Amino acid sequence: MTDAPVSGVPAADDFDGHTLEELAEYLDRGRYPVDPSIESSPACRIALAGLQRLREIAGPLLQQEADAAARDDRWIDEVLGRISLESRAGRRFPFPDVPVGTEAVVTEGALRGLVRAIGDSIPGVLTGRVRFEPDESGTRLDLAVDVTVFYGTSIQSASAAFRERIALLLPRHAPFAVGALDLRVRDVLERGPEQP
């Protein structure tokens, strides 16, 4: 396997000894033969999930742009960069009120992955940069999320769905109530011919 960069993302061993290119090749093979060093790594599994989402959403767009000879990879580079960032554990946030002698935490990377998965589950939305910060009390989480929408998607409806799902799902996995949610539409993309 090579250490060449994948679409502008440096091929550093950021994924428990594996590069993004190695993970992409593993996904190309249908995750076969099973590689225990990849499958047992949370960072690798998060990156694989991100790559799979990118392929499912962006595949038809890439084909359309390549056919039109007008391909622009900047937004793909940004998504791949976010996959690299999302797979890192980052800060650890403790859950309150756990039994004495017990520690329960959620990592920054896991929360980013959750927010991205929630956003990507909304039809016509592709989640980009995710930033969040607990307030001073440590009980509320403020979020800033950048998204791309596909042309024809109602931004108002998609934003409402995003806010509703974040408010419902994030507190189930994090020791925070959801505070402010700054949702910014950074780009609008034309749908590919096969894009639902």
Rank of each mutant, 00 (worst) to 15 (best):
R55Q: 15
R55A: 07
R55N: 14
R55Y: 02
E56R: 13
E56Y: 07
I57Q: 00
I57Y: 00
I57D: 00
I57S: 02
A58I: 02
G59H: 03
G59Q: 07
G59V: 05
G59I: 00
P60R: 00
P60K: 00
P60S: 02
P60H: 00
L61K: 06
L62H: 05
L62E: 03
L62V: 06
Q63W: 10
Q63I: 06
Q64M: 02
Q64R: 07
Q64W: 02
E65P: 01
E65I: 05
E65W: 01
E65L: 01
A66L: 09
A66D: 12
D67P: 01
D67R: 08
A68T: 07
A68M: 02
A68F: 00
A69H: 04
A69M: 07
A69P: 00
A70I: 08
A70P: 04
A70L: 07
R71H: 11
R71P: 01
R71Y: 12
D72E: 14
D72Y: 06
D72Q: 13
D72H: 07
D73K: 08
D73C: 08
D73N: 10
R74Q: 11
R74F: 06
R74A: 11
R74E: 11
R74T: 08
R74H: 11
R74S: 11
W75N: 10
W75R: 11
W75S: 12
W75Y: 14
W75M: 13
I76N: 01
I76R: 01
I76L: 09
I76P: 01
D77E: 15
D77Q: 14
E78F: 07
E78A: 13
V79G: 03
L80A: 04
L80K: 02
G81M: 06
G81Y: 02
R82D: 10
R82N: 12
R82Y: 12
I83W: 00
I83C: 03
S84Y: 04
S84P: 04
S84Q: 09
S84V: 11
E86D: 15
E86S: 10
E86V: 10
S87G: 06
R88L: 14
R88K: 15
R88D: 14
R88F: 08
A89H: 14
A89T: 11
A89M: 15
A89N: 13
G90E: 06
G90K: 02
R91T: 09
R91D: 13
R91V: 09
R91C: 11
R92S: 13
R92Q: 15
F93L: 13
F93Q: 09
F93P: 08
P94S: 10
P94G: 12
P94V: 10
P94H: 15
P94Y: 15
F95T: 09
F95A: 10
F95G: 08
F95I: 06
F95Q: 12
